[in-house]
Design a protein around this nucleic acid. Sequence first.
DNA 1: AATTGATCGAACCGGTCGGTACCATCACTA
DNA 2: TAGTGATGGTACCGACCGGTTCGATCAATT
Lengths: 192, 192
Amino acid sequence: MPVAKGSSLDPERTRAAMLEAATVVFYERGLDGVGIAELCASVGASKETLYRHFGSKDGLIAAVLQARSDRNYNWLRQAAETGGDDAAARLTAVFAVLGNWFAEANYRGCALMNAATQRHFEPAHSLAVEHLDRYQDLLTEIAALAGVADPERTGRQLLTLLEGAIVLADHHQRGRAAADDALAAALPLLSS
Amino acid sequence: MPVAKGSSLDPERTRAAMLEAATVVFYERGLDGVGIAELCASVGASKETLYRHFGSKDGLIAAVLQARSDRNYNWLRQAAETGGDDAAARLTAVFAVLGNWFAEANYRGCALMNAATQRHFEPAHSLAVEHLDRYQDLLTEIAALAGVADPERTGRQLLTLLEGAIVLADHHQRGRAAADDALAAALPLLSS
DNA sequence: AATTGATCGAACCGGTCGGTACCATCACTA
DNA sequence: TAGTGATGGTACCGACCGGTTCGATCAATT
């Protein structure tokens, strides 16, 4: 059977286009800063189509956040793997990826944390928690690889530095420097 | 001349009551989560009075954020002073205050950072920057007192830990533990 | 050619928002 | 007692929101 159905495009492509457009515009202007009508118009779709795909604005937001969490986590995980079995190299690679992210012109902090701050509906909060859990697991693995006395505690401290850098890169010192400072504070923790 | 004018109360008291109510409800439910009408009703005032005092909702928000920044900063500054001329004691006192804050039942992160994330109007952003500047100055003083090689850099790293702890206490590990982990990571930085 | 199903575009709905205008009321002053 | 000025309450405004509905359209199928 052919893939294309409906009017002009594969429904999956329409859904993906909506997700992508929503990801960009929600990140730039906030979850309440853009309406459904404008979002649909920007991808040439109708509101009916959006509601068939996502059910509600909150459903769309949840899908956007899930996709964003997956993408960002995979970035860090793949970066860490380039460090081989050297804990310091893994950590350095993670913060290098963060630095590149901070340097992007449209950097606006972590979409997951921002959403949990902006909205009080449940998916946003639980997705943020899962996001932080994955980050913490990744960092705890690095701490364990380094042979620290309490890997989970060191993992939490590394996560504190990572999230602090995300905040400062957004609201204070723009760009890569936030990651450099955080990495310099993080590396000695691997010798505890 | 008597102080009380108008109908029932001193105008200054009415203004202060509005500020206090707005501070609480904006912090709990977000800047867009509560309307002007509800806010006025909760203090028994009229919208006209609010607009005479603050000009606009953004004006009210700016006043709320300024007051909150002053209060939080003074808390940390006064705590630091209890540490005397011992840098580690000053830092420990600062994070002890943070821990108490994190343990409050209605803790919702830093109102300044939240506002800068939620809204894109200028006062919120510049107030957040000034807020972070003051925190960084406070921490840089401590770093200098400890005699570190690069006090400003150490100050930025301490600020990274502080802000990271604020985020994690809000969205991940509830309560005082976030401050304890951050302090344990911060103290060794005073020996650099 | 007829049918089907997804789509677009637009109208529509109820509700909420920030902000303004007006009026009766109150405490105070002269 | 007459007047002043800030107030609370209320109605109102225009705009926007999330969400629903409906008819016209168009591609793929039968």
